[in-house]
Design a protein around this nucleic acid. Structure first.
Length: 428
RNA sequence: GGAGGCUUCGCCUAGUCUGGUCUAUGGCGCCGCACUGCUAAUGCGGUUUGGGUAACCAACCCCAUCCCGGGUUCAAAUCCCGGAGCCUCCGCCA
């Protein structure tokens, strides 16, 4: 959520920042609502004060034998006016809140305007592998090596679902183990969250109300809202860990990481380029998360980018880092860098990690504060980063590390869990 | 799925039967001061949170806040209705 005071004070700056996302809003509409809201609130507070005073006098009169009836009538009249005013206040407040809830975060000043096409590669690591044989794609490799059973996955759960089996399950599990080990080394606290979350959790993360149709709702509320849903990423759980809390400054930054499957509806988004496990209704991801002081969030963001990169690099993959343009940055985020690995069969780079700084946008929605040593409580900054999503990493590993005979070399850090240096076709 | 109990300041707790002087008692913790070689102990004072007004800062003032939502009433921590969470027991179950 944006700071209403900031919109009031410099609506032009806000308008221009949102325009970079391609979001064009008439803020004068908001300013009018905001003004009426503030005025009505002040008025109704004054009326409350008056009623309170009269009620006190009723009590006093009852005790000392004054004219109770006249005072009661007077107080009742104030109460009636108050009720009318508050009904109106409630409507304005709701409309104002709806408007605020729908506004995405302001992209940082150095984030360029426009969509995907304006994303900029900031650096590359390694180089595209060259094959002296006809390279296979990840689906053929995974099927041929008996790692992933796409057919039976669809049989069990429908399209967009698959089964990891045998060495495939071990490879998948080894990736998760590797990430867990690395994050623990860096002092991040391991969290295994519930996969079922409430509406409030989705609201804080920025999922609701706007993107409610992207998640699997498992319990519909009477108000038509999703009362319970399956998390689309463990970020949604992690950001809520400290919802409605005020953290002591000395406890910041708080660094967490979580593992969970991610459940997504992905309605109408399948393309030929999403074959195999590249886009599914359920995929595994380890997520990093930080709660920081505002002045520390820029450095924390760099730290998270570095950590995500280190994981990809350790797996021996060629990748690049892109800075997203405003329009491609998630609504709740002020800046995002994507780590993208090279996928030979697609002749393109695919996202395996998204590293973002939400600044105080989520903190405001979730009322997540900290108390500086000297003064008033303030909102923390929240940052999240995939570290990493396996369902795109595994295809890249298969394709980039494939050999002429159809086997795949297991990246060194994973070997102790996989129990093999090379994956060969069954019977080969 | 059924029955009962509970939910008040950072923590514990009084207050709810009998509505008003209740943001609310006491203790712990924490902060400050005093005393004391130091510490401890003791004494005194302070300590819910959010918002508004105002503005150099602060104070003062106003509103809200006793799990949440609604109702009754001039007035609700307190009475009524609905919901959530926690605990105990029964049932079912990996």
């Amino acid at each position: 959520m944006l700071d209403a005071a900031a919109i009031r004070e410099d609506s032009e700056r806000v308008r221009l920042a949102l325009a970079k996302r391609g979001v064009h809003v008439d803020l004068s509409e908001f300013l009018a609502m905001d003004e009426e809201f503030r005025r009505s609130r002040t008025e109704s507070e004054q009326l409350r004060a008056e009623r309170k005073k009269l009620s006190g006098e009723v009590a006093k009169a009852a005790r000392e034998g004054g004219d109770v009836e006249a005072l009661r009538e007077q107080a009742k009249a104030v109460g009636t006016r108050l009720a009318e005013l508050e009904a109106r206040l409630g409507e304005v407040e709701e409309a104002r809140q709806r408007f605020l809830d729908a506004l995405p975060n302001l992209p940082d000043d150095d984030v360029v305007a426009g969509g995907k096409e304006n994303n900029a590669v900031v650096r590359e690591s390694g180089s595209k592998p060259e094959f002296e044989f006809t390279a296979k794609d990840h689906v053929d490799l995974a099927s041929g090596l008996g790692l992933i059973d796409y057919k039976r996955g669809a049989k069990l759960g429908g399209s967009g679902l698959w089964v990891y089996s045998g060495n495939g399950a071990m490879l998948e599990w080894s990736l998760l183990n590797f990430f867990v080990e690395e994050h623990r080394k860096d002092g991040y606290e391991f969290v295994l969250p519930p996969h079922i979350l409430t509406y409030e959790a989705g609201y804080t993360a920025g999922q609701f109300p706007k993107f409610a149709d992207e998640v699997f709702v498992i319990e519909q509320g009477e108000d038509g809202r999703p009362a319970k849903f399956l998390l689309p990423t463990s970020e949604t759980a992690l950001v809520n860990l400290h919802r409605d809390e005020t953290l002591p400054e000395a406890e910041l930054p708080r660094k967490y990481f979580a593992y969970s499957p991610c459940y997504r509806r992905e309605i109408g988004s399948y393309r030929a380029s999403d074959r195999g496990t590249l886009r599914g209704h359920q995929f595994n991801k380890v997520e990093m998360f930080q709660f920081t002081r505002p002045e520390d969030s820029a450095a924390a963001h760099e730290e998270l980018i570095g950590k995500a990169e280190a994981l990809v690099a350790a797996l021996g993959l060629h990748y690049r880092v892109s800075k997203l343009a405003a329009g491609d940055t998630s609504p709740a985020m002020a800046r995002t860098y994507d780590i993208e690995v090279w996928l030979p069969s697609l002749d393109s780079y695919i996202e395996v990690s998204s590293v973002s700084n939400s600044r105080d946008y989520q903190a405001r929605r979730g009322n997540i504060r900290y108390r500086p040593a000297d003064g008033k409580s303030a909102f923390v900054h929240t940052l999240n980063a995939s570290g990493l999503a396996t369902s795109r990493l595994l295809p890249a590993i298969l394709e980039q590390h494939q050999q002429a005979d159809g086997s795949v070399v297991v990246p060194e850090p994973l070997r102790k869990w996989v129990g093999a240096e090379i994956l060969k076709a069954p019977g080969a």
